[in-house]
Each structure stands twice: as structure tokens, then as C-alpha cells.
Computed example of a mutant assay.
Amino acid sequence: MDHYTLKMKNADIYQKDYLVLSKVNLQIDPGEFLFLIGKTGSGKSSLLKTIYGALPLQKGEAQVAGYDLQSIRRKDLPFMRRKLGMIFQDFLLLDDRTVYDNLAFVLKATGWKDKNEIDRKIAQSLQEVGMKYQAHKMPHQLSGGEKQRLAISRALINSPELIIADEATGNLDPDTSMEILQLIVNLQKSHNTSIIFATHDYTLIEKKYDARVLKCEKGQIVEL
């Protein structure tokens, strides 16, 4: 089978018992950037939750980072998610730990043990997102843009096959939103990571990055 980061065939996306998107056919190649747009409530988040295993796939086929979502066992979900990076609107940082410790937590949870290697990996990751000198700070000392830069660093630190950004700029002002999107675009190219960037802010896609644009509308996904 050809290798796709993500492939869905006739997938029905449910939120509990409610069908929100029907017959989704979608494939993302390694290193591809994809915008997913649509109004709030159009099914974007439900689709993303299905992709990372928070909602079950009830009908259709889907493979993500080499895992089959129809047959995946609950105990294998953490292993699949190690191949994914997640960036959320509300950052989901560990508020009681420094910037460094937020990243170290992820690395240790995924099997990194050598402190020198952990230090090197964190320093490199923070430099990539422009946070080289903020390792000692606590999350409450960071601006919204800096919190999202840390969240991007966390998402990328294990070199995932796919990054899922769910309204990643939703809590940021317009200028910071454009900065964060440009940072994600740059890092996607340098890491050759596939990205799904979901947003209801259509101004973000007006710059026409080299990316496909899919829209959730009336229970369907259409390519623009």
C-alpha cells in the first residue's frame, strides 16, 4: 500500500450518536500542509478527535501514521499518539512546571532517559520557536503567543509524522495569529511533517500558502 500519513475512506464522523460528517474521503501525503476550515460546529474538531482516537470511528476506513483506526486497541492509542503532535487553542500547558519541564515531561513520557540528550533536544526545540532564553520561566509569565510557541515546541519535539492544530490561533490577536501560523509553516517545511491546521478564521488562509484547503460544510468535506 502507498504510504500516506493519513487516509480516510467513506468515514462517517460521529459526536456521540449524532452524525456530523458523512463519507469523508481524505488523504494526506508525508510533509503535506492542509487547512481545514468551517464554522464553529461544522465538524472540524470531531474529525480531528476521530483522527487522534478521542472519538471512535464507527463506520468507514481510516489509517493514521500506520495505525488502523477501525481495529486499534485502546492500549495501542498512546503509541499511535506518539507519532502525532497536538496544538490546541487553550495551550494545555502544565502550569506548575517551567517551560523546560513542560518539554522534559513529554520526552520522559516517551522513553527518553539520558539527561544530556534531553537537554540538547529541549535547547534545539526552544531555539526553533524563538524561546531560547525562556526555558526557566513558568507558563503564567508567558504571553499568549509565547504559550503557543511552547505548545508548538512540545508538539514537534518527538518529530511526529502528523501535527494536528485545532484552532491553534483561536485565543490570539490577529498579528500574533499570523506570526504563529508563519512559524508553523516554516517548521513544517524544515521538519517535513504533515500538518492539519483547523481554523474558522478565514483571514489566515488568504495569504495562499502552498496548502490544500478543505471545508466542513453541511455535513460534508469539500476541497476549495
Score class of each variant (00 low, 15 high):
Ala11Asp: 09
Gln127Thr: 01
Asp114Met: 01
Leu126Trp: 00
Leu94Met: 10
Tyr67Ile: 03
Leu21Tyr: 01
Gln188Ser: 08
Lys113Ile: 10
Arg73Cys: 12
Ala11Tyr: 12
Ile157His: 05
Gly144Asp: 15
Ile37Glu: 07
Glu223Cys: 08
Pro30Ala: 14
Ile37Ala: 03
Leu214Asn: 01
Met86Tyr: 12
Ala135Gly: 03
Lys16His: 00
Ser143Asp: 14
Thr193Met: 02
Leu126Met: 12
Val24Pro: 03
Met80Ala: 14
Ser143Gly: 15
Ser194Cys: 08
Arg120Asp: 11
Ile157Val: 12
Asn116Pro: 06
Lys75Ser: 11
Gln27Asp: 15
Met178Ala: 13
Thr5His: 03
Ile118Trp: 04
Gln188Ala: 08
Glu117Cys: 04
Lys208Tyr: 04
Ala65His: 02
Lys137Met: 14
Arg154Ser: 02
Gln15Pro: 01
Phe105Val: 07
Ser71Lys: 10
Lys44Phe: 02
Leu94Thr: 12
Lys23Cys: 05
His191Ala: 04
Arg154Gln: 07
Leu103Tyr: 08
Thr199Val: 05
Leu224Asp: 05
Arg212Thr: 05
Glu128Phe: 01
Ser22Asp: 13
Val213Arg: 06
Ala155Arg: 02
Lys23Ser: 09
Thr176Gln: 11
Lys108Val: 08
Ala155Glu: 03
Leu142Met: 12
Ser42Thr: 11
Lys83Ala: 13
Leu204Phe: 05
Leu26Thr: 02
Leu172Ala: 06
His136Ser: 15
Asp119Ala: 09
Ala123Val: 00
Leu94Tyr: 12
Asp101Tyr: 13
Ile37Gln: 01
Thr203Pro: 04
Asn10Asp: 13
Ser45Val: 11
Asp119Gly: 11
Leu34Arg: 02
His200Gln: 11
His140Leu: 14
Leu224Cys: 02
Thr193Gly: 08
Gly43Phe: 00
Lys16Arg: 10
Asn192Asp: 15
Arg120Trp: 03
Asn186Gly: 11
Leu77Ser: 06
Val213Phe: 04
Thr203Val: 04
Arg97Ser: 12
Ala109Thr: 07
Lys218Arg: 10
Lys44Gln: 09
Glu206Asn: 10
Asn171Arg: 07
Ser46Gly: 13
Asp76His: 12
Tyr133Glu: 15
Phe197Leu: 12
Met80Tyr: 07
Thr40Asp: 14
Asn171Met: 13
